[in-house]
């Protein structure tokens, strides 16, 4: 059964990422047509936003395609199929989960931007600029997953005992689970930012710096998961060590990945609420942003606790 996973894993990355990107692109098209129904005269601007949004969402599936092609042309035979399959499982989790989420959620800012352009057609350039920036930032957890998948692929041929296999599985789990929460949070925030500009176009000067800082804070858990993945890949386990070493690494990965899950979503909800309020009354920017940064920092602390415990677990080996 576990050997079957080794062969199946060539197909899973492209399937998962294509699934996510397909759902996302469908939603963008739906919202674009709705926006054209509201404001038919702005159809050229909406068309441009639609094209850019679709092509950026497509990036998610392109990474999966690259990984699948690399795995397909990989003819080297691993030392042990049984344990290398664990590594392949970690690889598919790293690229598949992050790509699936990135495909779905990177459509949210594009949807909001289409509706915003329908509301403010003469402001379409600024709205599209913000959409581009936020969609690029949403892709970063997926890029981390892609990098980790490439690293796992280079180490798979060297696997010859169960601990090495579990090590690669843990590296994939950490970034795969860790990318879900931050990408949802980033997308919720981006959607709110694109909507807030259309409420009041004078708020753009306030929203843009606010977006940079808040997205930097929301994205922090994803960077922590990436760091833990890299640290796990660098751990050296002696070949005759008991299986408890591998299980410790799995525990560290789960600790990091699951602690970022709700943290990312809640920071996104907080930031999006602040964004809508700034759009409604930009003159209260300093008060709202103060409270918002404090709340974001407090919520982010739980991901930092998970990070500390994961590091302590790694250094017990």
């Amino acid at each position: 059964m576990i050997e079957m996973m080794y062969i199946l894993s060539t197909a899973i990355p492209v399937t998962m990422t294509a699934l996510g990107a397909g759902i996302g692109q469908g939603l963008i098209g739906f919202k674009a047509i709705e926006a054209m129904k509201i404001q038919p005269t702005a159809s050229t601007e909406i068309n441009r936003a639609l094209t850019i949004g679709l092509s950026l969402t497509e990036t998610a599936s392109i990474f999966g395609l690259v990984i699948s092609i690399i795995l397909n042309f990989d003819t080297t035979i691993p030392q042990n199929y049984n344990y290398a399959a664990y590594g392949r499982l970690g690889l598919t989790i790293a690229i598949g989960l992050s790509g699936f989420m990135a495909g779905i959620v990177s459509s949210l800012p594009a949807q909001a931007a289409c509706l915003s352009i329908a509301r403010q057609p003469f402001f379409s350039n600024k709205i599209m600029q913000l959409m581009l920036i936020t969609q690029t930032v949403i892709m970063t957890p997926h890029i981390f997953g892609f990098v980790i998948a490439l690293f796992i692929n280079t180490q798979i041929q060297l696997v010859n005992n169960i601990n090495d296999g579990l090590k690669l599985l843990a590296a994939g789990l950490s970034i795969g689970l860790g990318s879900i929460g931050p990408s949802i949070g980033l997308s919720l925030f981006a959607k709110a930012a694109c909507t807030a500009i259309s409420i009041n176009r004078k708020s753009y000067a306030k929203i843009l710096p606010f977006t940079f800082i808040s997205e930097a804070i929301i994205e922090t858990p994803a960077i922590f998961s990436f760091l833990i993945s890299l640290l796990i890949l660098h751990v050296h386990i002696p070949s005759d060590a008991p299986i408890i070493y591998g299980i410790t690494l799995i525990a560290a990965a789960l600790c990091m990945g699951l602690s970022t899950l709700i943290t990312g979503i809640s920071t996104g909800i907080t930031g999006s609420a602040a964004c809508i309020h700034i759009g409604n009354n930009p003159e209260h920017y300093s008060k709202i942003s103060n409270i918002c940064f404090l709340a974001l920092a407090m919520i982010d602390t739980f991901a930092i606790y998970g990070f500390i415990i994961a590091i302590i677990l790694l250094y017990t080996i």
Partner: peptide
């Protein structure tokens, strides 16, 4: 006391992550 951990680990994690990505 949380504020120490929150401030220092956030800065460390972000800069260290960026350093490692650039290095790779």
């Amino acid at each position: 006391l949380t504020s120490i951990i929150s401030l220092s680990f956030r800065l460390f994690g972000n800069i260290f992550g960026g350093y490692i990505i650039a290095h790779l």
